[in-house]
Design a binder for these strands. Structure first.
Lengths: 151, 151
DNA sequence: CCTCATTTGTTCGATGTCGTACTATTTAGT
DNA sequence: ACTAAATAGTACGACATCGAACAAATGAGG
């Protein structure tokens, strides 16, 4: 059992690395996206494609862990670009249903294709198995922080 | 050797988890800092404490992987709060030396103390050894993305 | 039904981030 | 030395993020 200070140091380093990796990867992502689009746009399209569209903005904000006011802004950008359509929610008049357009699906596919070479470059230096090994820990920490968030 | 699409999927998940963890941990950090201070402020103070002060803004920006214009803004906040002092750089008149003040060191110590309970809470659910196991991979990926950045 | 609290999404304002353009200084090449 | 290219930091502007306050709608409790 390590000493508490050592433990805290390890955790600080962990979050520090996570922060820098996020910074660098987001920047890389954005250089590959068409001008005017950010990682946040891609993330929403990706989420809707993977888990199905027709979700409410609030659902999406919760899943992606971003404040709803930030998501409003992101969705408005996606709407203006014709990548999604926001329909009224028949179940709840306060709410909306976010639907992907064909252009939205295509945008996501193109983005993934555009990032492919970078991803393969990473994969050449880091065996996917090694990345995959780290995923469970990351997911658990994510879930833990998520649950802890409201406290 | 996994199929390329599977590889890409794994990497996307990895970066996705990293992004959300960063989001959640940054938010948590900031709720523990005094009002008006951000993770970026803490990160600079922490960096200077760990690796020694007297560095130039450019050194710091490179180490933390943030654009120099962002760092200018962060340093100005730290200066206004009296947590650092920017002295002229005797080796290079274009540049400066960023020095920690006692208040700056104290601020960092207080911040770490304020975050201690959260860190210990994480540590209770995730053995530090498990976190430590993941660190080398994170550091390597960080270094890889860093080197690849200019490309 | 009829409040009242809760929830959804937006607007607004403040502020952080970062790219571009600029000045001052240093360094390299001749 | 002298000029040209590179580099440090900043000013500025565009824009993303996010908290607070708000309106509309829902749901819970009487």
């Amino acid at each position: 059992m390590p000493k508490p200070e050592q433990t805290v140091r390890t955790l600080f380093r962990f979050f520090n690395e996570v922060g820098i990796i996020n910074q660098l990867s987001s920047r890389l992502f954005e250089t590959r996206l068409p001008d005017g689009f950010l990682v946040s746009h891609f993330t929403v399209l990706n989420h809707l494609t993977r888990l199905g569209d027709g979700r409410t903005p609030m659902d999406i904000a919760t899943a992606l862990q971003v404040p709803k006011t930030s998501l409003t802004h992101t969705l408005s950008g996606l709407s203006k670009a014709g990548l999604i359509i926001q329909e009224p929610n028949p179940k709840d008049a306060r709410s909306k249903c976010v639907m992907l357009t064909d252009a939205g699906r295509q945008f996501r596919a193109d983005a993934i294709a555009a990032l492919g070479p970078d991803m393969m470059d990473v994969a050449e230096h880091f065996p996917p198995e090694r990345i995959a090994e780290a995923l469970p820990l990351l997911e658990e920490i994510r879930a833990f922080l998520d649950k802890r968030r409201d406290v």
